[in-house]
Design a protein around this nucleic acid. Sequence first.
DNA 1: GTGAAAGCGCTAACAA
DNA 2: TTGTTAGCGCTTTCAC
Lengths: 337, 337
Amino acid sequence: MQVTIRDVAKASGVSPSTVSRALAPGGAVSPVTRERVRAAADRLGYQPNQAARGLITGRTGHLGVIVPDLLNPFFADICKGVQARARGLGLTVFVSDTERDEGLELDAIRTLAPQVDGIVLCSPHLSGEELGSLGDFTDKPIVLLHRKEPGFGCVTADLVEGMTDALTHLHALGHRRIAYVGGPRSSWAARERAAGVEAVAASGLVEIVQVGSVAPHFDGGVTGAADVVLASGASAVLAFDDIVAFGLISRFTVRGVRVPEEMSVVGCDDIALSGMAAPPLTTVSVPKAHGARAAVDLLCRILATPAAEGEQPPQRVLLTHLVVRGSTAALDRRQRA
Amino acid sequence: MQVTIRDVAKASGVSPSTVSRALAPGGAVSPVTRERVRAAADRLGYQPNQAARGLITGRTGHLGVIVPDLLNPFFADICKGVQARARGLGLTVFVSDTERDEGLELDAIRTLAPQVDGIVLCSPHLSGEELGSLGDFTDKPIVLLHRKEPGFGCVTADLVEGMTDALTHLHALGHRRIAYVGGPRSSWAARERAAGVEAVAASGLVEIVQVGSVAPHFDGGVTGAADVVLASGASAVLAFDDIVAFGLISRFTVRGVRVPEEMSVVGCDDIALSGMAAPPLTTVSVPKAHGARAAVDLLCRILATPAAEGEQPPQRVLLTHLVVRGSTAALDRRQRA
DNA sequence: GTGAAAGCGCTAACAA
DNA sequence: TTGTTAGCGCTTTCAC
């Protein structure tokens, strides 16, 4: 079977507790003993049993990440980021894909909570109340990633600024009538982005044509939205996210409308695909890996210093930036066409 | 704190052991008691502590999946599949993204092994010897997914047949000179697929132009390969996987070569993107979710019936099928162009 | 059918 | 600095 702490103890001629101390970071052991124990542990290939340790310390050494869809590269990137940071901290991570199903999401939280030290939750769709009621199920810390909700530690990106940058860019290119294809109404991120767009519209910088809301799947019903955009007389379109943007471009191509010559397209997220597509997508870059790392760090900070009663956990807002690529062009190029 | 088995015991007026039995599937308890215990457990919101249970039973209730890159939708799909099946079995899954780094992969196996009941390993790059030496680190069962290696339980797809179907399809369309852009030489899947292509070439059905090997990233150096294909006089190209195929198409577009009119392209894997791209990709569909489920099931079977000494664990080969979409066309259309 | 007791592998008091 | 003891929450003998 497995090598236990007692095997190491016997092999190095000390007691199990000494082994425990020798292997722990701040254990009070003589350097000689520590070395001897280390050597024995290495030789035997000793791996502490996390479960047994956790029973005592109350720490599992595990983190949970919950995302709506791993196939969306945005979330795949987030999982990679969480994982990479966790690995650096000696933590292993459970990944739960909830298939955009709120029931599964609640289940996942309930199942994961007892088995982890904390959870990084990407939950665009759960309502604020549902989120708030999570405290009834568990007292494990939950950090919201790319969503802001009172009472939770949060890491978000400043999408209002991001949308503003995107529209300002289009304005600078001469576009005055711009369509916005929104994301699902139930999504927090979609509402946030829409708010950013509306703020710009209210400022009168450009005219915004709102074009419904669309699910961010590759197989989502973007076709109709693309046709509406085409009919609207807009010379440019801003999409809820890159996936929607690709869907639009695909439909534009079918309809014989060239991007960017006849239609400028801006996405949001900057998923890995965006730089490689033809044309490469101009998009609002959201810090995915960085956000993931920040969420893990925030989780660890909360773990290290339990919040005082009623104290609001920290909320961190990251910066976005516009990446100008090949899917946007000056309006006059279109007129020449 | 947490609700323990003793809280439930007290609440239902029985001993902890009775609670344990009442909640276990095959526990010998009177129906009345079981009901009473169940009710109390529900009322208190009792969740058995997996760690404590595992300490005794030797089962963690956890599974590990190790993949080279979560951003590759092929592997994202696999993780989703493993997850979905595991959820149905009451298991939670650790996901480890090894960033295509063999060192990280070995680390991941070593780290994960003690914390899980078994591992689903997608490891294209580890050598057969390295794989074989895994037994020194752990006796936890490891099932190889999309790779075959003696001594391991394996779930693979029949890519030799898949490649044959693809080339036969192109042949039927009138193509006689076909380029093959291979994957990384260190990859088992790449070698397997190449073998399939070579088998067809040897049969004399079509002429195959081998065009080096290319990394399956979206940002990989496909450009050069595309140019070689163009220069080779081939009228069609078969790519190692869909991602490479997209890279090729992207370059063809830049070079002004129309797909499928002037160049037919076939991918492999059938990632989610493939059906949505413009043009939608003709590709060899590999059963991703199905393979993932089969791997989990195989793992569970091995767990349930430990293999006899020296006995070869089961190996399962799944079928592929060609999905004909819009990236392939008959050769004469090209001549008309 | 049920309870008492032992112990999984480990860490944290407490002594020495 | 080190060893001894107790016990984390649970399951599993073993009695009854």
